[in-house]
């Protein structure tokens, strides 16, 4: 039952977007998110929609597969739309029910919020769907490298992320094993309400943590034995190199950002 957990949910396909440098995709996601909060009018919205549709088409990931991600946040979306609808102040209410007054501004805000949230999820999921977790950490490490000058341990963070990704399946397997061992001795993980179930998990956590710490200790020793001393003086087996497609992607990206900003200034 624990094996169903997937992380990073990479969707393997042979597309232009898959082949882009992970740094480009990180920047693109950032630009896209910023643009979502920048646009004001219908024209801006149309430009962003065009950009999103283009990205989805190019990524070769089925659109239905992508909007699966929306399911998880449906409740959040409905709630935030509802709050915006009811709590935005205005002048001429279009709908009154007791103390609840809905203004046209509220309707506008609610619709905007719905659009923003769903676009946010679909857009960012393009990045996680087309980039392997390893590429993502690599991209983060090189992309954030300037911050190491001001004392941010960028290399250490990236290393921790990639080790965590490597050990997730191992720890899941181990949890499964401990569960089975305890079930064999009469433990019941299925019975009772949610609180009861959570309580039943406690005896699972202790051996899991003990074993995780032991693994961490072993791994640290193995890394030291292989001359690991942190980021300084390290070379890369797979260094990130920008190609022609990446340059083109950057041009498209900044043209898009500029368009959105200009449209905002003119209020479209």
């Amino acid at each position: 039952m624990l094996r169903e957990i997937t992380l990073g949910q990479y969707y393997p396909a042979d597309s232009v977007i898959h082949k882009l440098d992970p740094r480009v995709k990180l920047v693109a996601t950032l630009v896209y998110v910023v643009s979502l909060f920048l646009f004001k009018g219908v024209v801006g919205f149309a430009v962003i929609t065009a950009f999103l549709v283009l990205a989805v088409k190019l990524s070769k990931v089925p659109f239905l597969y992508m909007i699966k991600g929306l399911k998880a946040i449906v409740i959040l979306m409905i709630l935030s739309a509802l709050f915006n609808l009811v709590l935005t102040p205005g002048i001429n209410p279009v709908f009154v029910l007791g103390p609840i007054k809905v203004y046209p501004e509220g309707v506008r805000m609610a619709v905007l919020m719905l659009i923003r949230l769903s676009y946010l999820i679909v857009g960012t999921s393009i990045m996680t769907l087309t980039t392997t977790p390893n590429q993502l950490t690599d991209g983060l490490e090189t992309g954030l490298a300037p911050f190491s000058k001001i004392g941010v341990p960028v290399h250490a963070i990236a290393m921790m992320m990639s080790i965590a990704l490597r050990f997730i399946p191992i720890l899941i397997e181990e949890t499964d094993l401990i569960m089975k061992a305890q079930m064999a001795r009469g433990a019941d993980f299925e019975k009772g309400n949610i609180i009861q179930k959570a309580k039943n998990m406690v005896p699972l956590l202790v051996p899991l943590f003990v074993s995780a710490f032991r693994r961490a200790d072993d791994l640290a020793m193995a890394m030291e034995a292989r001359c690991y001393t942190g980021g300084a003086g390290r070379t890369k087996m797979k260094p990130l190199r920008y190609g022609k497609a990446d340059a083109l992607a950057y041009i498209v990206l900044f043209a898009f950002l500029a368009t959105v900003i200009v449209l905002r200034i003119f209020g479209y």
């Binding site: 791994l219 193995a222 292989r226 001359c227 003086g233 390290r234 070379t235 087996m237």
Partner: peptide, 21 residues
């Protein structure tokens, strides 16, 4: 399990050489 660092075989083999530059 506790001495393989990377999630791809060849990257793990490359870990030592990367460390020594």
């Amino acid at each position: 399990d506790n001495q393989i660092i990377a999630s791809v075989v060849e990257e793990d083999v490359g870990f030592g050489p990367e460390n020594i530059g």
